[in-house]
């Protein structure tokens, strides 16, 4: 039986990198007595995979990992057992059963992610936010009105020119933040800082300090619409 855990990452935990968050959850599983399955062999490891790594410095309310269970545990018990052993800055928000097939794993199905980007008074702290500059509404419209938004994207081997426009599914001002909805996952992947760097460069406001916050990670359902990964599973009673 497989389960999907959704968690939030905030506060000082934004400084903990992806690999260390994985280590953190491995230890948390043991502390919480989650009946997680192991691989075989001399150094067995937990069957656990994260949907989409989160960069250092970014906070999130929609992070996902999938695990395999050796026995059933109710969503309610799992959430409360885990939250009892969490540190401040990581909370489990949901725990649902997902289909067993490999193609249902979070890593495979991730297709998009949404973000909020906040302008800051300075890079020293993400606590002091500034209102969006008044002209950004128009600037964003103009930015998106370009036929192509080409950037130099670094790959493992070289740098190449990519048009990121088709990967920006949505970008609009919303109260004190910019809302971004971007192609994410193994097929197409666009990071929010690349979009914002390109945008700031376009507006000539390169110096603006920003804070990034991931809102959720999505897959496409059969009808082709985007749904949060947690909606792809069902509550375990």
């Amino acid at each position: 039986m497989k389960a999907r855990i959704k968690f939030r990452k905030y506060g000082v935990m934004k400084f903990i990198g992806h690999l260390d968050v994985m280590r953190y959850f491995q230890k948390a599983m043991r502390r919480a007595d989650i009946p997680i399955a192991f691989t075989g062999g001399y150094s067995p490891h937990m069957i656990m995979s994260f949907a989409q790594p989160l960069g250092v410095g970014i906070t999130s309310e929609g992070e996902y990992l999938d695990i395999e269970l050796t026995e059933k545990i109710s969503s309610e018990d799992a959430i409360s057992q885990m939250n009892r052993v969490m540190t401040e800055g990581i909370d489990v928000v949901s725990f649902v059963e997902i289909p067993d097939e490999k193609k249902a794993s979070g890593m495979t199905i991730t297709a998009a992610a949404s973000y909020r980007v906040y302008p800051l008074e300075s890079a020293k702290t993400s606590d002091i936010r500034l209102p969006l500059p008044g002209n950004w509404t128009e600037e964003i419209e103009e930015f998106l009105a370009q036929e192509h938004i080409t950037v130099w994207k670094k790959t493992k081997r070289s740098e190449k020119e990519v048009d990121i426009k088709p990967m920006i599914y949505d970008m609009h001002p919303d109260a004190d933040s910019i809302y971004l909805f971007l192609a994410t996952g193994s097929e197409q992947n666009l990071k929010p800082d690349l979009v914002m760097d390109t945008f700031l460069n376009y507006t000539g406001a390169e110096e603006t300090a920003l804070h990034y916050h991931r809102v959720d990670v999505y897959a496409r359902n059969e009808a082709g619409t985007f749904v949060p990964l947690s909606d792809m599973g069902k509550i375990i009673l």
Binding site: G11, V12, M13, F15, I16, G17, D20, K27, R31, V56, G57, V85, T87, E88, G89, S122, A123, K124, T125, S126
Partner: peptide, 26 residues
């Protein structure tokens, strides 16, 4: 929430910021 002695820009610039933030389990 805990306030850190080091500012975000410093923590994001140095190696392994987790060395300086505390907050570990136990």
């Amino acid at each position: 929430m805990r306030k850190l002695a080091l500012t975000d820009d410093i923590l994001l610039k140095i190696e392994k910021p987790a060395r300086y933030i505390g907050n570990e389990i136990n």
